[in-house]
Design a protein around this nucleic acid. Structure first.
Lengths: 237, 237
DNA sequence: TTCTTCAAAATGTGATCACTTTTTGATCCC
DNA sequence: GGGATCAAAAAGTGATCACATTTTGAAGAA
């Protein structure tokens, strides 16, 4: 029996005009993405409400939403927790992410303007800076910005919400796994994608994007890291 | 200015041990899928609560969940409604559905046993029966069962929730469009898929599935039907 | 008439409470 | 000692209320 820690929940700054509901959602989402809530740990309404100093109502809606996005899992006992990761599930999420994002990129390609490419180059530069500074948090966040900004070139975007859901499910594992990695170095695969964009070459774009995603994710999904993750998760179960 | 109709919400039979929350969710989901709630029509908490004879609480959570699944849309004014469909968005949803389901099928393929194929054949037969009876509702539902049962062959399934979300978004349009169609006949493409499954042939499976989806959906997405749909939606806006 | 103003009505949001289900853990029995 | 029992505690669920925001529509001015 392990005495459960008092639920580490960093309080994100509350934006103007933001409802309590939205704020709680962002706090919880960030905590889950950062791997601050260990898988298997029960996330109770009252705990979150107390940690954030709000009533149960907005917490309930935020938990419900994150469950729908599969960032959290509602068990039969009605308990809510961060879902456990397995090697097979991790593989499926990665393959799904590749399929989804390659599709999104291909659909967006015809709408990518030179201006948007310039913006992508700018984001890429900021990734390099964050990388040099060793700021993994920023690298991950900016990398997501890069992909998001690419896919959103399409004016009638419907893929992005699904992609966000996958990111959310992979997030906690990536973060925890990375924290075990001593030497972290992300190869810059974005330049190849940018070249494909300039040439309006769908196939090259798919290849570059798949390489980028595999590089950023798959080398993390080695057996040893997965093992380290499962062990760290096991500490709290 | 159109006087809004009193929100047609069929009351689905409540299952045993089901929370009010879940029941309300199923009722709303069914109503949206069936196209009973016209796009643009504001769905207010109090209206739904009154129509279903429950308090506001479970309705709020159900609405929130359906919004997360993009079956409903939360506007800036905090109003909730069924999102409008456009030709471009419809096309994107169809292409996404094909990409997603082909991927899901391919991942599931190695796990498809002869027993599962037999079960799929059985579902297919029931589809034929419903088709002969002219029961479009049943055909649509059973067709979803067929696809769901195929993809769920994979023991570590992560695609299905995303597929369900796409079905939800396409649902109301398909139903409304079908109701405008006089001669409805769904070509049975499932047999080709079943053959591919028996042969464990990934490429043939992809081809059969894409054909099946395009057959079932794309012929509905003709310009005239889309126009009919937009007009019918316009009646209530 | 047409636009503006503003108060009433409608609606969403958040807090609180009562009730039900689940979990916990101490006690009892074997 | 080990397992069953059951009451207390904890957690989820649903109802209700007060308050904030938005919408509506009537009254008044240009």
């Amino acid at each position: 029996m392990v005495s459960s820690s008092p639920l580490n929940l960093p309080l994100i700054e509350r934006e103007l005009k933001e409802t309590t509901n939205q704020w709680v959602y962002r706090c919880l989402r960030h905590a889950v993405m950062t791997g601050l809530v260990p898988p298997g740990r029960a996330v109770t309404i009252r705990d979150v409400a107390a940690a954030l100093g709000v009533s149960a109502m907005p917490v309930r809606e935020a938990l419900r939403r994150l469950s729908t996005e599969h960032a959290l899992e509602v068990q039969d006992n009605r308990r809510i927790m961060v879902p456990q990761m397995t090697a097979s599930k991790f593989r499926e999420l990665c393959e799904l992410r590749i399929a989804l994002e390659c599709h999104a990129a291909e659909r967006a390609l015809p709408y990518v303007t030179p201006q948007r490419i310039d913006e992508l180059v700018a984001i890429d530069r900021r990734i390099d800076l964050a990388n040099d500074a060793g700021d993994r948090e920023a690298v991950t966040s900016l990398n997501q910005d890069f992909h998001r900004y690419l896919y959103q070139a399409h004016p009638n975007q419907v893929v992005m919400p699904l992609v966000e859901s996958i990111w959310l499910q992979l997030g906690p594992f990536i973060r925890l796994a990375l924290s075990k990695l001593k030497d972290f170095y992300q190869v810059d695969r974005h330049s190849e994608a940018l070249t494909a964009l300039r040439r309006q070459d769908p196939l090259a774009l798919r290849i570059a994007l798949e390489a980028d995603i595999r590089d950023g994710i798959t080398h993390v999904g080695t057996n040893e890291l997965l093992k380290a993750y499962v062990e760290s998760a096991g500490q709290h179960s």
